[in-house]
């Protein structure tokens, strides 16, 4: 079994091809590199430059009321969810479903990603408005 898994998961020198695998892999890699920057900014700005490591309510509202911060945090959310959904898709596809099932999985993950992004933007907008 271990040998079987080794055959299936051994890293390749090139991205997998066929049925959008290559494009998905490239998007996963690009969004991953972008996340290193965006997550770094998010963690440093939200936790490491703040006394005590956490912003209180007023500080969070003040921070998110800056349009540049709002844009960066929104971009972070989009890239993060994109990367996460592609990651879940890749894990599920590892287990050899039929093409039909893979198509259903992809559609479900698009819906889950859109729902997660919608919820995230609602949270960000509500906090930024200070209501």
């Amino acid at each position: 079994m271990a040998a079987d898994l080794n055959d299936r998961v051994r890293p390749r020198a090139v991205p997998p091809s066929g049925r959008g695998g290559s494009l998905a892999w490239i998007l996963q890699a690009v969004s991953g590199v972008a996340l290193i920057v965006l997550l770094g900014v998010h963690i440093v700005a939200q936790h490491f430059v703040v006394k005590g490591g956490l912003r209180d309510y007023a500080q969070v509202v003040s921070y998110l009321s800056n349009p540049l911060v709002l844009a960066v945090e929104s971009l972070f959310v989009v890239v993060l969810i994109w990367h996460a959904m592609l990651g879940i898709r890749a894990v599920l596809f590892d287990f050899g479903f039929s093409a039909k099932t893979e198509a259903v999985i992809s559609r479900c993950l698009v819906a889950l990603g859109l729902a997660t992004a919608g919820y995230s933007f609602w949270v960000i907008a509500t906090i930024a408005s200070g209501r």
């Binding site: 898994l5 890749a90 590892d94 287990f95």
Partner: peptide
């Protein structure tokens, strides 16, 4: 990286694949 070589693995084999992780 995603393996796209096997697409019709039987369910029991798929469960073994999960456990093999």
């Amino acid at each position: 990286m995603t393996s796209t070589t096997v697409h019709t693995r039987p369910t029991r084999g798929r469960v073994r694949g999960v456990l093999a992780y």
